[in-house]
Write a protein that binds this DNA or RNA. Structure first.
Length: 234
DNA sequence: GCCCAGGTGGGTA
DNA sequence: TACCCACATGGG
């Protein structure tokens, strides 16, 4: 067993300090807002559809698009598979970037029926890493969409990093401007036990504080995290 | 009118 | 690898 270098020890210290802050952040948010019971969708199918439709889009607009899909009886994978991309695009207009998202819905169901017999649970089967890789192969499913599907449709412990998460962590100096999605996600995975309910709640709480306080223009007055100080391990 | 919203993929250097 | 950009509706 060789000696750890100073740099390695320093790295461990940084990780410990980050983990402490990540856990403290959750306690503060939970104390302030309580349980959130998320994601705002009824079924695993709706989670998948919502996860794609909400890409860079306010959830309010996604709801209109989902309502249109429901009215057209398009809220199932077979129904999506049966419609043309153009037909879907017309229905999901309110969600914005609708031609792109119609294509993405189609690539998802095409993959689902081509390789998984149309069954989401088959696509999400196996180890978390395997299921995540399968999702990421689908065009239109990036890391955040994949993690949202894993966590909220598959009940798998994959932490979701979104724009709110990134902004909040930057402002509290847990990450810098150049941190990647994977680095940010790893902060949470290292700090927290693998607990689906916890990941679910924590992400929901971050969205809540992001909407209320940690907006593009920060409103720190009354923010539950206003006095959270992250000591970078120094 | 302007900025923003629970991203992603494609193009370029 | 690391930026830069298109995609587009609806609300504040």
């Amino acid at each position: 067993m060789r000696h750890r270098s100073g740099a390695e020890r320093r790295e461990e210290e940084l990780q410990r300090a980050s983990s402490t802050t990540i856990r403290r952040m959750h306690r503060l948010l939970h104390a302030a807002y309580g349980p959130q019971h998320w994601w705002p969708a009824e079924t695993p199918t709706e989670v998948v559809i919502g996860a794609i439709l909400t890409q860079n889009t306010a959830w309010r607009n996604v709801e209109r698009a989902i309502a249109n899909l429901r009215r057209a009886e398009c809220l199932s994978f077979p129904a999506l598979h049966a419609r043309s991309a153009d037909a879907l695009a017309a229905l999901i207009r309110p969600a914005g970037t609708f031609r792109v998202k119609a294509r993405r819905l189609k690539s998802f169901v095409e993959e689902l029926f081509a390789h998984y017999d149309g069954h989401l649970d088959v696509l999400l089967d196996g180890t978390l890493a395997e299921a995540r890789r399968r999702l990421l192969r689908i065009s239109g499913v990036g890391p955040e969409t994949a993690d949202a599907i894993l966590l909220y449709a598959g009940q798998r412990p994959s932490f979701v990093v979104d724009a709110y998460t990134t902004r909040i962590l930057r402002r509290h100096f847990l990450i810098d401007e150049r941190a990647t999605y994977a680095q940010t996600r790893d902060l949470f995975l290292r700090a927290l036990p693998e607990d689906v309910q916890l990941f679910n709640e924590y992400h929901a709480l971050l969205v809540e504080v992001g909407k209320r306080h940690c907006r593009p223009r920060a409103l720190c007055e009354g923010c539950p995290l206003a006095h959270l100080r992250h000591d970078g391990g120094l």
